[in-house]
Design a protein around this nucleic acid. Structure first.
Lengths: 200, 200, 200, 200
DNA sequence: TATGAATGAGGCTTCATTCAT
DNA sequence: CATGAATGAAGCCTCATTCAT
């Protein structure tokens, strides 16, 4: 049974619900929500179908729990990058690298997120969470830089989503072709553009 | 650009095409691929279920046709913006506005695209199409600007996806909260950042 | 495929819904609601499971339709007996015989009704219908007799349910042991008791 | 009369028995046999699911035990009413009141009985018990009255079920609309009809 | 004696797809 | 060209029952 990287975050006895939770994530990310059957999840974990329903109300609840957990993990990584007592620029640099590293490591999860972004199914409020929580980390750094006058007084909402979009889509661009993200060149290029712009 | 088979049946020409988009695409977007039934699509278009299968091999082909058609439409808009005999900077400006205008107008399609981006289902090669065709428009302008030395010699692949991501995620950010995109402020802000960067 | 007697009431082409309706009744009455599977119904009719759902929203709707129809049939029989231009006593006599005849002929249906009487499942309002509509027929005759002073001025609500109970439970008593109802003796005995009482 | 195995566990004796009735029987009655889960019963009683299976072979046996116990309780009440050294008429009067009082007090059980009456499931022989044991009480009184020539020489089988039906359905009529049974008026009315008939 | 985690058979329902008309 | 009745495979979920502790 494959373990997703991000499952490492759960330490201690993998009892019941937790155990299912982690294993199911792998299956869901590999095949997507609809193509994954509860039977497959059960088989992958090595328990019976009934056991899934003993711990989770239904397939959807299990799925949402995984999404939510993944977002928390992502947020955690970003927050860590932004917490250092560095300059705003350096924080941005760390966020860029942290973002790429997370995307590379949790590729499956990232695809899952992207799918949910456009979803009208049920996880729209999850999306709100994600944009709210994770974008906020970027925004805080931006606003700090503006306050410290190292950044120009831009509209923080717009520029936050712009920065986040640069990173996300670039990461996705590489990942979707199963190429690795060229961590240093890409990070440097995006820093450069974001800080200095493309014009001479 | 391919015409959907029964486009002409309904009012003919452009109108028929619009008709299809506003019905089938709308339904798919509102409920997602899996939650949308062929029956609903048929009802939305105003034909019977059998008719769908008369023109399309199956649900998936219909869906892909819509995606493809939407991408074509998007590409068309971008290409138009890039064709003008303007400076690279002005072309970028036009692309930014064109991107936002399209996203605002074809909101449903945009959500559909996003959903597909993360898909493991079947439309991965569609995604390739999209990124290839549409990103190429941006890339051509970038490379033109670099060649003309109005832009710095950046890595075109990375910066193209960065620019595209800025636009896409910003548009999505506004649309997902059902706010309209603030066309002029957002366009100006993104131009400014992309051209000049955030640092003083 | 067995035909319930009461299905004779439906003349004309047994199309779709009607056809399923009638055949399903037989299966339901033989095994009861819960022990009857949709698969069995489909098999009994000779159609596929999907066809059931093409015509009925779900198992329950199919069942309720059958119950409702049966009650209507019962009410119809009673109403006919009460419509004759006879004396109240004669109408009572006819109602008694009509009740017994119906119970004998539609034994399966009667058991179905009884089961529903005590049900808390979903058909409680059906029960209300039944008691309201069918008891009303008895009550009208009673009140007519009271008005014409051939009956004593009893409480119509109580005596109606009493008369109805005499008939129903007596019929049930015989049917539940798979004995036929002794039509004439039983009818005469109940008439006699109801009209004259047991005391000398 | 059998004691439910774990009756004594809970408060012991009569109270324990009441406890069982008010919990298990109550749950069964509120939701019906099939819609009641063993888990709910266990929760209502305040034990774990396993405990149910420690004392009862399966759900059905538990259910039948409750039915049987209820019938015993009912029979007990009737027998008490019929044991007094009163006249046959007075015994009938007492049976009528006893019947109503029981129905009012054990409303849940009565609904349960009614449901079983129409059942094709498994408790058909329970029904036989009930009709046999309880009807016999009425019948004994009737035959005593006939022998003593205070009642006319009617067919005891038919008239027993008739009397029983009058009471049962009238009680049910009131209970099913959640109205209380009007004890005195209803008792008097049924006595009157049963003794004297409706005709002048 | 009591528990509750685990099971797995079985039921209901959905819906993409076909095909005779 | 167009229909819509009919299908049946496939999936989700329930819940009575078991058993190790």
């Amino acid at each position: 049974m494959s373990q997703l990287p991000f499952t490492e975050v759960f330490k201690g006895g993998k009892e019941g619900r937790q155990y299912i939770f982690e294993s199911a994530a792998g299956v869901f990310t590999k095949k997507g929500y609809h193509k994954t059957t509860v039977e497959e999840i059960a088989a992958a974990i090595g328990v019976s179908k009934g056991t899934i329903y003993y711990y989770f109300k239904n397939k959807e609840e299990l799925y949402l729990a995984i999404i939510r957990e993944g977002i928390d993990l992502f947020h955690e990584q970003l927050a860590k990058a932004a917490q250092s007592p560095a300059s705003p620029q350096d924080k941005i640099r760390k966020l860029i690298r942290g973002h790429f590293i997370f995307c590379e490591k949790e590729k499956d999860l990232v695809f899952l997120f992207l799918k949910e972004l456009g979803s009208t199914d049920f996880s729209r409020e999850i999306l709100a969470d994600m944009l709210a929580k994770c974008l906020q980390v970027f925004r805080n750094v931006l606003e700090e830089g503006i306050a410290k006058k190292v950044f120009r007084p831009v509209n923080p909402e717009i520029i936050t989503s712009a920065l986040f979009g640069m990173l996300t889509i670039t990461a996705f661009h590489y990942l979707s072709y199963s190429r690795g993200i060229p961590l240093e060149p890409a990070s440097l290029a995006l820093e450069d553009i974001f800080f200095n712009g493309i014009c001479r």
